[in-house]
Design a protein around this nucleic acid. Structure first.
Length: 328
DNA sequence: AAGCGCATCAACCGCCAATAA
DNA sequence: TTTATTGGCGGTTGATGCGCT
């Protein structure tokens, strides 16, 4: 990382805003001594005006810098270390809903900071998205938006989720790329990318080599029949959702199958010309398939689930986001 | 061992909105 | 009402570590 070498904001240059104090302010990495000063002050006095914090703690830093240091590094409730798969799931999930609203995402991940999440997204997840989108760029439907953009389309999401006219295009499986990369260990990413909208009613079938659409609506099927995918593995493919702009979703998929004993089993699959393979190198037979993507319906008819989230819970959660009011 | 390129991530920058003076 | 200050946010930078050649 950056050297903790004490750099001082010079009296010249863009950082000087005619503030007489600014020519004494340090920049760059924080030293352990500075950390200790800030930590001690914050624990003793709590948060106040950040410029006061900087001054009273004896730090030659601007308040903004102190705030950032505290929030991103010194705060006692920060969680350290790598993101867990569950956290990764949440980040991907919430990003699909919230976009680059890192602070909003961070607010839903206790102990994580917006900066941390942003870095994680930009370094790790975005890279994976790029890899996947490079596969799909040549196969994207003409109206698909630039998949390299990490801006989600919340409006489309909620329009669709509300039954207001979203749609899915499902392209022929022959256009699906092959993903054999063992480094792609997070199936959660794949899952989320594939099918953010599981509410596919009848009609999501691959038809004679031509893309066909599957309607997304507010009516979620309660039985396996409503998935529209059983005995029809060819229905999997790129998913294109959109009203004004489209979200192009790469086609690596996870599928839920039932074994001979009717036990539910979820696997990630990829398509290789003639066969679909699971991540355990088994050829998946379509006849037992009862769901796609993150979504499946179990034999007990317990409702549609999305990864770890119950759909209703998710929407309940989402509905509490005041900034996601796209109805107006 | 050295050089290179890439990944990571702490910290800065600039903008904006809220609040105070 | 205007101006200054502050806090918050997302985007970006750049130092460092690490793996590969």
């Amino acid at each position: 990382m950056r050297k903790p070498e004490p750099s001082v904001v010079s009296s010249t240059g863009k950082n000087n805003k005619n503030n007489s104090m600014s020519n004494k302010l340090r920049k760059g990495l924080w030293s352990p001594e500075e950390d200790e000063k800030l930590m001690r002050y914050m624990l003793n006095n709590g948060q106040g005006c950040w410029s006061d914090v900087a001054r009273n703690a004896g730090l030659e830093r601007c308040g903004k810098s102190c705030r950032l240091r505290w929030i991103n590094y010194l705060r006692p409730d920060l969680k350290r270390g790598a993101f867990s798969p569950q956290e990764e799931d949440l980040i991907i999930h919430f990003h699909s809903l919230l976009g680059n609203r890192w602070s909003q995402i961070a607010a839903r991940l206790p102990g994580r900071t917006d900066n941390e999440i942003k870095n994680f997204w930009n370094s790790t997840i975005k890279k994976r998205l790029k890899v996947l989108s490079s596969f799909s760029s040549s196969t994207a439907p003409p109206n698909a938006s630039d998949s390299s953009s990490d801006q989600p389309n919340n409006k489309d999401f909620f329009t669709a989720a509300g039954g207001g006219g979203g749609f899915m295009n499902i392209i022929p499986p022959s256009m699906m790329p092959i993903y054999g990369d063992s480094s792609m260990q997070s199936t959660s990413l794949i899952n989320h990318m594939f099918d953010p909208f599981p509410m596919v009613e009848h009609g999501g079938y691959y038809n004679n080599g031509n893309p066909c659409t599957a309607q997304i609506g507010s009516s979620v099927g309660s039985g396996a029949d409503d998935c529209g995918f059983e005995e029809n593995i060819e229905a999997f493919g790129n998913v294109n959702i959109g009203v004004e702009e489209d979200i192009f979703v790469p086609p690596l998929v996870s599928v839920s199958t039932t074994d001979q004993d009717q036990n539910l089993k979820t696997e990630t699959i990829f398509y290789d010309n003639n066969n679909y393979y699971s991540n355990s190198n088994n050829i998946i037979k379509g006849e037992n398939m009862i769901g796609v993507g993150n979504y499946f319906e179990d034999d007990q008819d317990q409702g549609l689930t999305m990864g770890e989230w119950e759909w209703e819970d998710l929407m309940k959660d989402v509905s509490s986001f005041p900034f996601l009011d796209y109805q107006s």
